[in-house]
Amino acid sequence: MTKIELTVDGSKVSDDVEPRMLLVQFLREKLGKTGTLIGCDTSNCGACTVHLDGHAVKSCNMLAVQADGSEVTTIEGLADTYDGGELHPMQAAFHECHALQCGFCTPGMIMRSVDLLGENPDPSEQEIREGLEGNLCRCTGYHNIVRAVQTAAAAGKGAQA
């Protein structure tokens, strides 16, 4: 067992974990952060995407111990949405554009999309498509996910102007 300390969704947490425990398992099993999902075992689907120190990572692709000392944000901490609180602009765009159906890819897709706009606030459709390449969705055909990212990008530009 290894002791780790990190910040998850704004709260400090510390725990003893098995060295082989994946970050996604730590989040789900130890912290009950079940908003972050697991869709594969080859790091291909992106369902587990969270932010580590502000950037999107696949939390199935790293060990919990590697997150020691870091700041992790999951879909549950992206915005203070409890009790009807306001959605993050990307969440709002996904809702507005009907960018989800079963919702299983959605937390990862949103976390990846937020990071994508962080890197490139004004992406072309092709840049969005390539930027989301590591996140699979089986339901939407991506059409409305692309629309959602474009909508969030436009809203972001509006906010800056």
Partner: peptide, 21 residues
């Protein structure tokens, strides 16, 4: 209409079977 289902799914308050303990 925007979907009623969305809010729980986009905020991570979903209840998939594997979430059950």
């Amino acid at each position: 209409r925007r979907r009623k289902e969305d809010r729980r799914l986009i905020t991570g308050s979903s209840r998939y079977t594997d979430n059950i303990v």
